[in-house]
Amino acid sequence: MKYFSGLILLIVLIACKEDYGLKPVGHVRLEYPEAIYQNFDSDCNYTFEFSNQSKPMQKGKEACWYVLHYPGMKANIYITYFPVNGKEDLAMKIKDSEKVVHEQTVKASYISPREFIFDEKKVYGTLFELGGESAINMQFHATDSTKNLISGSVYFSTPPKYDSLQPAINHIKKDVIHLIETLKWK
């Protein structure tokens, strides 16, 4: 009986220890402050409003190509400007912009297009949102349909894990929509 009591006491003592095993990796909840928008003005043929959470930088040596860098999110919006020489040239440039989207169909679980038409400002465009583990999260283009076209892409400098990036994607999506809605041609 002494042996049995000792065994029960030993089992109870061992069972009461804390578990120091490895815990599964969790994801941090991402919340971002409301954006304050400011005017982007340059010598380019366009202007728009961008978030104060991003920093505009010249992209390479090309005139009117910019990056809106979000250091707090490890994200970038790449903006590329193209002068347009006629309807055929415009159609080809839009096709090239959309080709980037369609190349992502291997990894994207869905592609959701949204059209923008602002006749009073002569701004016409499409925003493509890509879901899943695509390298590009958003792609857009906007034009005046005669002389100007801008194309843009949203990239994150992290592995494409859609679920964990979703709050940041939604936050930047608001900024991209605001950029398109405030776009003006000079």
Rank of each mutant, 00 (worst) to 15 (best):
Y3P: 03
L10T: 15
L10Q: 01
I11Q: 08
V12M: 12
V12F: 11
L13Y: 00
L13M: 09
C16G: 08
E18N: 07
E18R: 05
G21K: 05
G21D: 02
K23I: 00
V25T: 11
Y32S: 02
A35K: 03
Y37P: 06
D41R: 09
D41L: 10
D43H: 10
N45T: 07
N45E: 11
Y46N: 05
E49F: 08
S51T: 04
N52K: 10
S54F: 05
P56H: 08
K59F: 14
K59N: 15
A63L: 11
A63H: 05
C64P: 08
C64W: 04
W65K: 12
W65E: 14
Y70C: 02
M73D: 01
A75H: 00
N76S: 15
I77N: 00
I77S: 00
Y78S: 10
Y81R: 09
Y81D: 08
V84N: 05
G86R: 08
G86D: 12
K93D: 04
I94V: 13
D96L: 12
V100K: 14
V106W: 03
K107E: 10
K107L: 14
K107D: 15
A108M: 14
A108E: 12
I111N: 08
I111E: 04
E115F: 06
D119W: 01
Y124T: 06
T126W: 01
E129M: 08
L130Q: 10
G132E: 13
E133S: 15
E133V: 01
E133W: 01
S134I: 03
S134P: 03
N137H: 12
N137R: 12
Q139E: 03
A142C: 10
T143F: 05
S145F: 07
T146R: 13
K147D: 11
N148F: 09
N148Y: 12
S153P: 00
S153I: 11
Y155S: 06
Y155K: 05
F156T: 00
S157H: 09
P159W: 03
K161D: 15
L165G: 03
L165P: 01
L165A: 09
I169L: 03
I172L: 08
V176R: 00
V176N: 01
L183A: 02
L183W: 05
K184W: 04
